[in-house]
């Protein structure tokens, strides 16, 4: 027992239509499976696709799509990651290597502008995309614009900081501990909220080798190689763990 070409075509079209409207993948699978079952049984009883989907398949697809929510919310949770990541990287790196924090005025203003630029940019594009019904590729492109722009901005701040001379602000021991703790708490809060431990994992992967190898008598080059090995292994392990988890989730939903 298999479907007629026309039914198959309809199900494929529906799948693509819902995907390109940015709907949740599991929900898409669920409704297409349900309709496939329905069409199978209908055709076995001598009914046509038209009797199931009506005169206008596109109007029918729209009515299905209208009852499903967009899936963008599930990955906008990664926005804070992009904001927090570079700042945490800079601050923790300096805390581990130097102890007390000291940044040029230029760098500090740069971080503040970067944060504002990022938040305002994200707010604007989220508002824009929620009003418009565009394809997923276009939506992802629009949403990544503020990320790319603010990242480039931060990189250029880091780069220009080495060339421009502005007064250095020393935070002292207590100031450094306070800043470090605040960033640390923000990361914990973000990890709990987004249910991902990607920032802690990446930070650990980047800084653990430094901490572990600092006191050893190894030569600089072997430190570098072992350090890189630890970094890539940790990130690799994490990606593998995510991959296995996602696969289990997919199998569970089928």
């Amino acid at each position: 027992m298999s479907l007629t070409q026309k039914s198959k075509k309809f199900l494929e079209d529906l799948h693509i239509y819902l995907l390109s409207s940015g709907k949740n993948l599991n929900e898409i699978k669920e409704i297409t499976k349900e309709l496939e079952d329905h069409l199978l049984e209908a055709e076995a009883n001598g009914k046509s696709v038209d009797q199931v989907v009506g005169d206008s398949p596109s109007a029918y697809m729209e009515s299905i799509s209208g009852e499903m929510k967009s899936d963008l919310a599930s990955w906008t949770k990664y926005f804070p990651l992009v904001l927090l990541g570079p700042i945490a990287f800079t601050i923790f790196g300096d805390l581990i290597n130097g102890g007390e924090l000291a940044y040029s005025l230029f760098h500090i203003i740069g971080i503040i502008v970067y944060t504002l630029l990022f938040i305002i940019g994200v707010a604007i594009v989220l508002k824009y995309t929620s009003k418009k019904q565009s394809s997923v590729t276009k939506e992802i492109f629009i949403l990544s614009l503020p990320i790319i722009v603010s990242m480039l901005f931060y990189l250029s701040v880091l780069f220009l900081d080495t060339m421009i001379d502005t007064p250095i602000v020393h935070f002292g021991e207590i100031g450094s501990i306070v800043i470090g703790s605040v960033v640390f708490l923000l990361i914990i809060a973000f990890s709990i909220w987004s249910k991902t431990i990607i920032i802690p994992v990446v930070l650990l992967a980047l800084f653990l080798p430094d901490i572990l190898l600092k006191e050893t008598a190894l030569s600089e080059s072997s430190k570098l190689i072992i350090g890189m090995f630890i970094t890539y292994s940790l990130i690799g392990l994490y990606l593998f763990y995510i991959f296995v988890k996602e696969r289990k989730k997919q199998q569970g939903s089928e």
Binding site: I31, D50, V53
Partner: peptide
């Protein structure tokens, strides 16, 4: 048409 029920069920 039979399919009408699915958006309603959703």
């Amino acid at each position: 048409s039979e399919g009408t029920i699915y958006p309603l069920l959703m």
